[in-house]
């Protein structure tokens, strides 16, 4: 356990890094999407377009900040704050390396026994930002967008919760660090089918949670003029975007932590340099970047679902699949092991 001031310092550094990560995620996304579509993507500002996020940020800051006259001013300002704060706070529970591995410091901010629960809880609180934002703007497009979004996120929370059940049952703990240390895949090959289905279900639910394509109904630029952020401009708009992108980073980090070995690297790297698979940060960051790439790949490939399809898929298919995975894993644990 680090002293309190170190924890605060780490939290601060993490927030700054995540915001930088958000900025460069937009770059990564645009470049990669460009390549998927035979384009180059932004490459004019600085080498490889690397200064593009900074230029965008400067532009964003100097935009006029419009608040609708009929808006509920306080909530209107509060909503983007809620979104971005809870997106940032979620990341705090994710361990980035073994204990004391970072120059004697722990490479995480909070080591909670209920880490997984905490992550699920904070991601769901983020929906308040969306909902309040849509409501406070006092516009029908915003309200529709936020209603859609809330319904979607609450529906897919079920899939999210049920698909992590398999991992929880195998690991017997909610502590993210212990889950990583245990490595759920190494317990028994009999558990693999359940885990694969759970990973699949979790992935889909997480995609819906962060409103990524094909579940990007809350925004739906083409129909809803960008949904709940219709009335937002300037920095508040940027904050919502920040929350969404940090949410994407969070989702990748959680998938990596629960299912893909988290901060641990592949063991065969230890043959090259002993202890390499235990290095903090790099493995987690590498996995996050790869998983973000898959999210962007989805964006390049799929179309937005219709609202009724979305709901039917969430309640009729995903819910049952996740439940099935949990039952399968439970049965294997009870009868085979």
């Amino acid at each position: 356990m680090d002293p309190l001031w170190v924890i605060f310092l780490k939290a601060f550094v993490m927030s700054v890094l995540l915001l930088g990560g958000f900025a460069y995620l937009t770059w990564y996304q645009r470049r990669l999407l460009g390549r998927f579509q035979h384009r180059l993507g932004p490459n004019r500002t600085g080498p490889f377009g690397l200064l593009q996020p900074i230029a965008d940020a400067i532009k964003m800051i100097f935009k006029q900040d419009v608040t609708p006259t009929r808006a509920d001013k306080f909530v209107f300002i509060l909503a983007p704050g809620i979104s971005v704060v809870f997106a940032l706070v979620t990341f705090g529970a994710i361990p980035a390396g073994p204990a004391n591995s970072f120059f004697g410091l722990d490479p995480w901010i909070l080591d909670l026994d209920i880490g997984l629960l905490y992550v699920l809880a904070t991601t769901s609180i983020g929906v308040y930002g969306i909902f309040l934002g849509g409501w406070a703007a006092n516009s029908k497009y915003s309200l529709l967008g936020s209603l859609r979004s809330s319904a979607q996120i609450i529906s897919y929370e079920l899939g999210l919760g049920l698909s992590v059940l398999s991992v929880i049952m195998i690991a017997g703990t909610l502590n993210l660090r212990e889950i990583v240390e245990l490595n759920v895949w190494s317990v028994s090959p009999w558990l693999w089918p359940g885990l694969i289905v759970a990973l699949f279900a979790f992935w889909i639910s997480a995609t819906a949670e962060v409103s990524n394509v094909p579940f990007d109904l809350p925004e739906a630029e083409q129909e809803l003029v960008a949904g709940y952020i219709t009335e937002y401009s300037s920095l508040k708009f940027a904050l919502f975007f920040m929350a969404e992108y940090v949410g994407m980073i969070n989702a990748s980090a959680i998938i990596a932590t629960l299912f893909l070995g988290g901060y641990k690297g592949p063991a065969f790297f230890d043959l090259l340099i002993p202890g390499m698979s235990e290095w903090p940060f790099i493995w987690l960051i590498l996995k996050i970047v790869l998983l973000l790439g898959v999210f962007i790949w989805l964006q390049a490939s799929l179309m937005r679902m219709r609202y009724d399809q979305l709901m039917r898929f969430g309640w009729v298919w995903l819910f049952e699949i996740a439940l099935g995975a949990a039952l399968l894993t439970g049965a294997v644990i009870a009868f085979v092991l």
């Binding site: 998927f36 579509q37 035979h38």
Partner: peptide
């Protein structure tokens, strides 16, 4: 939207990732 179609579509986009961009650096 069946899983198979999704997989097929994603295969198509992936194959395009490795093609040369058509952008003219004007």
């Amino acid at each position: 939207m069946s899983i198979l179609n999704v997989a097929k579509g994603m295969g198509v986009t992936l194959s395009h990732l490795f093609k040369k961009p058509v952008t003219v650096q004007y």
